Amino acid sequence: MRRLTFSLLAATLAGVTPALAHFQLAYTGQANLEAPARLPVKLIFWHPMENGHAMDIGQPEDVFYVFKGERHDLSESLTPITFTGAQNAAQAYEVTLPVKRNGDYILGVVPTPYYEGSEDIYIQQFTKSFLNKGGIPTGWNDPLGLPAEIVPLNKPTNVIAGSTFSGRVLSAGAPVAGAEIEIEYLAAEPDTQTNTVSAVAAGPMPGGAIVAIADENGVFTFGVPKAGHWGFAALGVGPDTEHEGKALSQDAVIWIKAYDLN
Rank of each mutant, 00 (worst) to 15 (best):
Y93N: 03
Y93E: 01
E94I: 03
T96Q: 13
L97E: 13
L97P: 12
P98S: 01
R101L: 12
R101V: 04
N102S: 13
Y105Q: 02
Y105S: 03
L107G: 06
V109W: 08
V110L: 07
P111E: 02
T112D: 14
P113W: 02
Y114P: 04
Y115G: 03
E116M: 13
G117A: 07
D120M: 11
Y122I: 10
I123Y: 12
I123F: 12
Q124K: 14
Q125G: 02
T127A: 00
K128Y: 05
S129G: 06
L131K: 01
K133G: 03
G135L: 08
G135W: 06
G135I: 07
T138R: 05
T138M: 08
G139R: 08
G139Q: 10
N141K: 14
P143T: 09
E149H: 03
I150C: 06
P156H: 00
P156V: 00
T157I: 10
T157V: 15
N158A: 11
N158C: 05
V159L: 06
I160D: 10
A161S: 15
S166K: 12
G167K: 06
R168Q: 15
V169P: 01
A172R: 09
A172Y: 07
G173V: 11
P175Q: 06
V176M: 02
A177F: 09
E180W: 03
I181C: 10
E182G: 11
I183D: 02
E184D: 10
E184M: 06
Y185R: 04
Y185L: 06
A187M: 12
A188I: 00
P190A: 00
D191F: 00
Q193H: 13
Q193M: 13
T194Q: 12
N195S: 10
T196K: 12
T196G: 15
V197M: 09
S198Y: 06
S198K: 12
A199W: 09
V200Q: 13
A202C: 02
G207N: 13
G207I: 07
G208V: 03
A209R: 15
A209I: 10
A214V: 08
D215A: 10
N217R: 14
F220H: 07
T221N: 08
F222S: 11
G223S: 15
G223D: 15
G223F: 09
P225D: 00
A227N: 05
H229N: 12
W230H: 07
W230Y: 04
G231W: 01
F232L: 04
F232N: 07
A233I: 14
A233Y: 07
L235K: 11
G236R: 01
